[in-house]
Design a binder for these strands. Structure first.
Lengths: 212, 212, 212, 212
DNA sequence: GATGAATGAGGGTTCATTCAT
DNA sequence: GATGAATGAACCCTCATTCAT
């Protein structure tokens, strides 16, 4: 097999992935319904027929996108969250740090944005995300908080509900910026936001120091 | 003018509103692009032609919906937020209580949901919401926090960023429930969620008693 | 009956005529198919319903226009043409003079233009114009030429075909100006055109002086 | 390349032309506004979608028709008219002979008929025809007459206006026949008409023979 | 495998016509 | 008589999907 052949083979194998990348870009930009298969093909550098060679329908594209992203960065943190033994504030800090870094990268945040945008139209997405992503990250987080409460490091908060207090401000920050173009004035927003959020969060959930 | 005439006149005057109600329902259910004007008309109990009698295009429907909702419940709270003098935690509690009650009512939460869903496709919506809603509520909240920090009732948090800690958990709670069907197990969710959120938030932002 | 009442009555009686005037204007401007009944009503200063009060359909409007114009200026010339005894060049000059004056007035030329424009779409128009207008003017002209040939004032031309040489240049002049905006450079076009046309025409059809 | 492939390729390349042919037929028959794209497609033997594959809109069809006919038979005569040196009556005879032969063929006269019919609704047509057809044929004719006057072969007529006397009778003949179904009784109309027209025209514009 | 010409169902929009007032 | 809100059939155009090459 010559080099050329190998390159071609490699390309051929990468085709579905390239199509999904193009579809993701178009769907995020225009919304699924307004996106055209023609444009997906054009951006993927293939013909319209080729898209249908790999995916049976336009809907299969969005399903493929969501499935392929099954293991987002966040998921890799699950084992860490599950097995962590010490102060729960440390993994929470790490999780939020990773999340916010990812959300700052358009390629990485594209799938979550697509999911939020189209989840109402595709029950499959809600099920899949609930089962594969949220259903795994959230229980890990909940158990982390439970352990924190049990060990007395955290005040007796409701672990299930407290998850919302951990990720919610991040969600609000991203939504304000991405959807409405509302960003804080001073710059360095991400770091400053994260510091302020964690400051409030940890003051809010940490048990009082004994001497207080 | 007879009773009959009055009734008909009344109906005629209410038409645009009825059409917008129907459009809102369909848009929230299917998304703007997938919604059919035919179905909007059917739900409004009129013919397709009547929709175009009052609105020049399908896009004008979504614009009409957003404009009509200019004065959402939240906005009415702005004056209260602006003029409030005492402990800032009281108006924050009231605001979140009102918000969460509204979001629990599908009719009241439909517009915000539509806005979030379609804001990327209609720059007009982002501008309008930024100018008319967020641009008014957020500054009021920010000043409230600023005053709390100045009077020493709150710790020296960043007011602009802290807004995200106040509304974010609410956003996360609604998103998890509405988009992914993820609700806490025990029931009474809204009250319990709000209590947990305020508990953490106020522990997080209040100045320590002994320092105060 | 008061003056006011009389005036109103007069107006009411004039309604159909005003509607036809409006319809004529709109039809000439946009073409029948692209004209909207709404605009006809607006220009007539009545409601759309009123148009249908006097005319059963949009097509009835064009029929009404053509019928009302049955007695165009040209027709009034027919008796003169029929009974004229002397040199045929005189009535031809008069006919063309009247025609060209009328065609220069937009109100007067509107019906002929509408007829030419829509005659292919409405067989009724072709029949009606052939029977009521052309069928009367042309035979009169033909007989005039016949008499001229018989009396030796005109060369032995074919009367039926010579009609085309009389009115054709006028048609071409109007078409070039109205349809394509092509007008001769020097101004005074109508008079100069008519003079040139008659000069050529009469040199073309008159018997040679010495022969006569 | 096999025969089959060639045939298909040929067909594919001919598609736009076939669509324009069908559109021309339908437009001439019904008028642009009343013509349906569906019927154009049906007559072209393709689906509605295919029409839009080659032409972006219904209006583009009429533009395509007019552009394609840029080089009508008449235009090919322009060089001859321009360079002709001898008796101007010869090229005029030839031009009118060619024109009348073309106008007698429905396929050849379809575009001029469409142009006359729709020129008021599509300013583009007026501009295009003025620039590309009339703007070239008429000056050539005018110069021909000018030269005839200068050489003394023609009487001192106005060249610009005399053009109307040359083509006008032809226009009238066609209009009477095509639009109103009015044809001379005896048959052989075209030849007889042309003979009569030229007889009158040349008597009308020729300088008197010396002996007369 | 890859292409892109062709399809045709479906949706947004228009507008002649009707009819309750 | 007069109105104009309401209707709905019909039209232009789009685009997901197919299939001959």
């Amino acid at each position: 097999m010559t080099e050329t052949q190998k390159k071609f083979r490699r390309r051929a194998e990468a085709r579905p992935d390239e199509v999904l990348n193009a579809a993701l870009a178009v769907f995020v930009e225009k919304g699924y319904a307004a996106a055209k298969v023609d444009e997906v093909a054009r951006r993927a550098g293939v013909s319209k027929g080729t898209v249908y060679l790999y995916f049976p329908s336009k809907e299969a594209l969005i399903e493929g996108i969501v499935r392929r992203a099954v293991a987002p960065i966040a998921l890799r943190a699950v084992p860490d969250l599950e097995t962590f033994e010490g102060d729960p504030r440390l993994p929470i800090t790490m999780l939020l740090t990773v999340l916010i870094q990812q959300l700052a990268r358009p390629e990485a945040s594209a799938v979550p944005r697509l999911v939020i945008r189209e989840v109402m139209s595709f029950p499959f997405i809600a099920n899949f995300y609930r089962n594969e992503v949220l259903g795994k990250v959230m229980p890990a987080l909940i158990r982390l908080i439970e352990r924190g409460v049990e060990t007395g490091q955290l005040r007796p908060v409701d672990p299930e509900l407290t998850v919302r207090s951990i990720i919610g401000p991040l969600l609000a920050h991203v939504a304000l910026g991405e959807l409405f173009g509302i960003t804080p004035a001073k710059g360095l927003e991400l770091e400053r936001f994260l510091a302020n959020h964690l400051d409030i969060l940890f003051h809010g959930i940490s048990a009082q120091p004994e001497e207080a």
